[in-house]
Design a protein around this nucleic acid. Structure first.
Ligand SMILES: [Mn+2]
Ligand SMILES: [Mn+2]
Ligand SMILES: [Zn+2]
Ligand SMILES: [Zn+2]
Lengths: 157, 157
DNA sequence: ATTGCGTTTAGAACGATTCTAATTACAGTT
DNA sequence: AACTGTAATTAGAATCGTTCTAAACGCAAT
């Protein structure tokens, strides 16, 4: 998986260059951290980690850089509610779903299963009768429940 | 559909009574408005409408009442991001999905299609290999795209 | 009618995000 | 290597949505 992250980083840097955006040390530091982060971090998460090696880093810069990536389609934003209402940022551009643990809040990527034609036509029908003429651009799916670790903990108590 | 809303209202009032919560005029006004609202209103939306007929109503009361309903499982909360980051409240307790318009932000309920066993087992497998041991409590699905009205507008321009 | 305690209220506090205006520094030019 | 235009960074203020607080109120049981 290291190569995958490397590729992500390259794509991000290329995009900044191509858009004539400046390759500042702040941006590169954010990119290095973000491209390898599977945890769906909040802006706070990233800021806190960046601060240790980059004490002058500002919040606005974190948000600005994530915005630039989002504009390029290289990052997306998740709003999952729950404890903290903070947005979570996702460097994984492959279409995928999310499993969110009710107890610990961990977010896991779930690759999309190629859907059976019968099922997807049934879904399409349900959609079309409830929202006629709606044209779908994307479908998001969130599984809510308990991750393996939290389920184990719950059984012990 | 009027009867359905009436039933919702009755269930909400019954629940307050059963929980020994007081049937204040504020709560009843919120319930009357909310039980018949298919638009997934924000707290602001409800507050603004309540204020016209109930000028002393406070924000805290709106939130408190929605919390009480949520605790009873009679209301749920949606965090869809986008323009406003405000939570949307949903009095529809049937399991259902949502179609959200990118342009106008409208949210439409989509009943769940009874899934084909083949498809759901494929999904289960994808979930289990990416998040082994995760126990699912609920699945949320959001269709993003353009509603019929906004698509029409887009074609004209 | 009395009264206790749950409820409402206005406004302050809070967390997350965006904006502002002054400073800094990248990258292209000389 | 120095210069320079302009984009980016910074700290802090502002804003938005939501929750908290403490005092006043009023439902409902007696
Ligand atoms: Mn993800
Ligand atoms: Mn709904
Ligand atoms: Zn967990
Ligand atoms: Zn629309």
């Amino acid at each position: 998986m290291r190569t995958e992250h490397k590729q992500r980083y390259e794509r991000m840097v290329d995009d900044l260059r191509q858009k004539k955006l400046k390759l500042t040390p702040q941006r590169l530091a954010i990119l290095r951290l973000f491209c390898a982060d599977e945890s769906h971090p909040t802006a706070q998460d990233l800021y806190a980690r960046l601060r240790t090696t980059f004490p002058t880093m500002s919040f606005a810069t974190v948000y600005n850089t994530l915005d630039a990536l989002a504009l390029a389609g290289l990052s997306s934003t998740l709003n999952l509610g729950g404890e903290s209402r903070a947005s979570r940022f996702d460097p994984n551009t492959d279409p995928h779903h999310h499993a969110v643990c009710d107890a610990c809040g961990s977010i896991t990527d779930i690759p999309v299963a190629t859907p059976a034609p019968a099922a997807s036509s049934r879904d399409a029908h349900a959609l079309d009768s409830a929202a006629p003429g709606f044209s779908v651009r994307a479908v998001e799916r969130v599984y809510r429940g308990l991750c393996a670790a939290c389920r184990k903990k719950r059984l012990l108590s």
